[in-house]
Amino acid sequence: MTLAQSINGWLRRVPAWTLYVVFALWGGWYFYLALTRSTGIWTNQVQGLEHVVGLLALKILIAILAITPIRTYTGINLVKFRRALGVSAFFLVLYHFLVWWFLDVQTLGRVVADIIKRPYITIGMGALVLLLPLAVTSNNLSIRKLGPLAWRRLHWLTYPAVLLAAVHFVWLRKGWQLEPLTYLAIIVALLLLRVKWRRLALALPGLSRG
């Protein structure tokens, strides 16, 4: 048995729902830190919470993009965790948004004004809006109702959503900073991997006909 096969065998025994527990506790832990800490990033507790929650969501979204290449290149199959990761990422993005609304800017007027006037917030909001239908249709009933093809097409919205989230991160910093640009670069690389495969898939039947 190969290493990938034994890892896959071990993963089969881990139920996907454990991820919901992990990320719920993780998000709760961040809230606890924001309540109780007052140094470093927690000197500004609200901004600290906003940042760590947003970053965790972005990391999960990157993990989702990595699942297919990991399977292609290593044979390790994480596909069964994709839904739990996607739904967790959505709830963390929602958490990030609610912290921004209720603890940071605090009034609906400021929320609306910022979404309209400030492109980096508009973009972040765009990512949340794109993730909304994905979260709503993350169940077997929706797959049946939409049909697998339409459901898959709908869930391609993940790609622009992740890209918008990364641009949101780059844009909210002062100047061009290495940390958010690194996230953006990883995301672009993971998306480019897919583009290449699509082109190959389209080109191959053409070649066989020729």
Partner: peptide
């Protein structure tokens, strides 16, 4: 006069904790 990316009308005073008003 707002910064193009955020409002300058209000601020967060450091030290107020998680639930402090701007």
């Amino acid at each position: 006069v707002d910064h193009p990316r955020w409002s300058q009308a209000s601020e967060r005073r450091i030290g107020g904790g998680l639930f402090a008003k701007r």
